[in-house]
Design a protein around this nucleic acid. Structure first.
Lengths: 153, 153
DNA sequence: TAAGATTGACGAGTCAATCTTC
DNA sequence: GAAGATTGACTCGTCAATCTTA
């Protein structure tokens, strides 16, 4: 027997679906119109900027950016074309490649970040009280943790 | 001056990003492997099944499914090929089209729904207490409401 | 044989242009 | 002219196959 969702559970579930879809769409649009970057591009720039020497191995980067290897490969190729990142061979492991943030990639991130953070505040933090946002964050952390466990299991 | 996110705010924000990405990915995978449907297909089937005569005008359906018109057009074309839906001309307004759930589409939904609901329970409801889930839902409703206001403004 | 990474073909989304009817 | 809907070209993601080094 399927245990269907109660009307209230349904309502909450739909709210989740709507909020996650609309928020991603809104932030993507702002980033695209303001700075010509996709959300995926931005995520890559952030991860590289936070890493030692502003570089990461392709597979490390794929994990951190919640991407698949082939998706990341295609994406890095496009971003190389835009001079946002470059590829460099890995000395230790000749199978490997480094994805490296270019100066232009760094500049693009520095230019986009304030607007993007402003968008996150406006569309996610501001509509909620501090307590509501904290509750949201904690719930998401639990859900994320559950899903990460599944993946590795 | 940009008001950057505090470390705690950052953590919550990343939790949101991770949870929404991994949950969508997991539910999509289960639906695809178990029933050969994408999340987008499923959403269409649900909306049509809930509508009078199991049909909706294309533009109505696009709104309800949070889709654009052109995206929906392409998607309905694919789903027509799978015999999940069909198009029918609209008598009242000759510009319009009905998207109609086929018998096979109905069967596909009936077959997939229990597994999908089970997935939503397992990956979203179960990892949280009832209070935590309710708080998540209410926060999402506020955020969704804010974003809907922007769109129409 | 497995791990790191890439490639190419195909399915899906976006945008601007188009066609028909209102 | 505006609304409902579709189309085609281009971009992005997925999957299976491939290549190289470990």
């Amino acid at each position: 027997m399927t245990r269907w969702l109660s009307p209230t559970e349904q309502k909450h579930w739909r709210s989740w679906l709507t909020a996650s879809a609309l928020l991603a769409e809104q932030l993507q649009r702002e980033l695209q119109e303001g700075h010509g970057l996709s959300l995926a591009d931005y995520e890559i720039l952030v991860r590289l900027s936070e890493s030692p020497d502003r570089r990461l191995r392709m597979s490390e980067l794929a994990k951190k950016a919640l991407s698949s290897r082939s998706r990341l490969s295609h994406q890095i190729s496009r971003m190389e074309g835009l001079d946002l990142v470059s590829r460099q061979p890995c000395a230790d492991d000749k199978r490997g490649q480094w994805a490296v943030l270019t100066d232009h990639g760094w500049d693009a991130l520095v230019a986009a970040a304030p607007d993007h953070v402003e968008g996150v505040r406006t569309h996610l933090l501001d509509p909620l009280s501090a307590a509501e946002f904290a509750a949201l964050g904690r719930a998401c952390a639990k859900v994320a943790s559950h899903l990460e466990d599944i993946q590795t299991a």
